[in-house]
C-alpha cells in the first residue's frame, strides 16, 4: 500500500505541474513580475497609481481600445481610483455621446454624464477593424483576466518592444515584442518617455506608465478586489475559530465512545 500511495502522490504532483506547464505553453518569454500592491491576501490598489493609470488609458490607449463594461461613475466608487464627484463629472463631460431622440426624432450629441459607459473609439467592430488594418483592438474591460499571466503579462507586453533579430521578417502592421505570442503583435509600441504629462507631476517613464495603466486595468477587470479580500479575511478568520470550537465540541461528544 505504501508504494501505491507514493505513486498516487507522484501523480498528484504531476498534475499540479501540468497546470503550471499549461500556462507556460506557447513559446513566450516568462513575463516580468513587478511588486503589485494588490497582490497578497490583504492587497489593495494604489489610488494615485489608478488615477494616473486612467490618464494613461484616456490619453494613450483609448484612441484604439474601448472599455465597454465601465462607466464614468465607476471612477468615484470605493476601491477604485476614487476621483471626487466633480472631477469624474468633468472627465465624463470631455466625451460626447448620442442623446435620446429629440422632439423631432433627431439624435444629437451631448456631453457624457456619470451614468454613461466609457465612450468607445468606434461606432462598431467593423469601423475598428477598418481603422487598424484589419486587426480589431480588443476591449480592455476584463483584459487582465482574459490573458494568462494577467497584470504581469500586460505590463511586460507594454515594455517588450525591442528591435527584431535580423533573421525575422516582419510584415506591414506587425511589430516585434519579446513577450507576445510568437514575438509578433499588431499593436505598435505606445509608451515612450513622456507620452503623457502626469497631472500629479510624476515623471512619465515607460515603466511608470506601464505600471500605472496595468494597475488601472487590473482594477477595471476586478473592481471589487479590495472588498473581496477584506471580506475574505474576515470570513476565513471566522471559519478558523468555528472549526476550533467544533473540533472541541466533537471531541467532547465522542469522548465516551470507544
Amino acid at each position: 500500500m505504501k508504494i501505491s500511495t507514493n505513486l498516487f502522490a507522484t501523480f498528484l504532483l504531476l498534475l499540479s505541474f501540468s497546470i503550471t506547464q499549461l500556462h507556460a505553453a506557447g513559446e513566450m518569454k516568462e513575463p516580468m513580475h513587478p511588486d503589485w500592491s494588490f497582490e497578497g491576501p490583504l492587497g489593495k490598489f494604489e489610488r494615485a497609481s489608478l488615477q494616473r493609470g486612467y490618464q494613461v488609458y484616456t490619453e494613450v490607449c483609448s484612441g484604439c481600445h474601448s472599455m465597454n463594461l465601465l462607466s464614468y461613475r465607476n471612477l468615484i466608487e470605493e476601491g477604485g481610483p476614487e476621483f471626487s464627484e466633480p472631477q469624474a463629472k468633468a472627465m465624463a463631460a470631455a466625451f460626447e455621446v448620442k442623446a435620446a431622440p429629440n422632439a423631432d426624432g433627431e439624435i444629437e450629441m451631448r456631453p457624457a454624464i456619470l451614468s454613461d459607459k466609457f465612450v468607445s473609439p468606434y461606432e462598431n467592430e467593423q469601423q475598428g477593424r477598418a481603422a487598424n488594418g484589419g486587426a480589431y483592438p480588443p476591449d480592455l474591460s476584463v483584459m487582465v483576466k482574459a490573458r494568462h499571466g494577467g497584470a504581469d503579462y500586460l505590463y511586460s507586453l507594454l515594455l517588450g518592444y525591442v528591435d527584431a533579430p535580423s533573421d525575422i521578417k516582419l510584415d506591414d502592421g506587425v511589430y516585434y515584442n519579446e513577450y507576445a505570442k510568437g514575438q509578433k503583435i499588431a499593436m505598435p509600441q505606445v509608451l515612450y518617455e513622456d507620452a503623457v504629462v502626469y497631472t500629479d507631476g510624476t515623471t512619465a517613464t515607460p515603466e511608470q506608465m506601464a505600471r500605472d495603466v496595468t494597475m488601472f486595468l487590473t482594477w477595471a477587470a476586478e473592481p471589487k478586489l479590495e472588498a473581496r479580500k477584506r471580506i475574505g479575511f474576515k470570513v476565513i478568520s471566522y471559519l478558523l475559530i468555528l472549526s476550533v470550537l467544533l473540533y472541541f465540541t466533537n471531541r467532547q461528544i465522542w469522548k465516551d465512545t470507544h
Binding site: 471566522y238 475559530i241 468555528l242 467544533l246 472541541f248 467532547q252
Partner: peptide, 15 residues
C-alpha cells in the same frame, strides 16, 4: 461542556 456547546452553537448561528 454546556458552555462549549452553547458557544459553538451561538457562533455558528451568528455566521
Amino acid at each position: 461542556r454546556n458552555f462549549l456547546y452553547v458557544t459553538t452553537g451561538a457562533f455558528a448561528a451568528a455566521g
